[in-house]
């Protein structure tokens, strides 16, 4: 019986793929990081992923109000935005930012997080 179960365990091994995004999606539209602005790229990302579902909104469960630029900027200035979103990537907690969105936020932060 033990041997049977041990063999069953090998079933879990049996559907492996060795894909990577570079090869699986060769025609991927390259991420546009040439000109990242708060109004065009950053604000929509924050509205959809941070200032929604009663998180980083007035009276929400998240710390700070991300519905306006100054609220976001205060978290940029104390380093927590960079730390949580870019470095640790544990915010948003469900991890739903795409690699391109993270890259755009990184560029915006490295430009000094302007309100443009």
């Amino acid at each position: 019986m033990k041997i049977l179960s041990v063999l069953l365990l090998t079933l879990f091994l049996s559907s492996c793929y060795y894909d990577n995004e570079d090869e699986l999606y060769p025609g991927n539209i390259p991420c546009d990081t040439a000109q990242v602005t708060y109004s065009i790229q950053v604000e929509p990302i924050i509205s959809a992923s941070c200032a929604s579902a009663s998180c980083h909104v007035l009276g929400g469960t998240g710390s700070g109000n991300f519905q306006n630029y100054s609220g976001v900027k205060s978290k940029v200035d104390n380093g927590s935005f960079m730390n949580r979103v870019i470095v640790q990537q544990n915010m948003p907690p469900n991890g739903d930012l795409s690699a391109c969105e993270i890259e755009q936020l990184k560029v915006w932060l490295s430009n000094g997080a302007p309100n443009n």
Binding site: C16, Y17, Y18, D19, N20, E21, D22, E23, L24, A99
Partner: peptide, 13 residues
């Protein structure tokens, strides 16, 4: 640990 999809070819599945 096996990951079916990784980001780049430089990273191991």
């Amino acid at each position: 640990v096996h990951r079916n999809l990784v980001e780049t070819a430089d990273v191991e599945n």
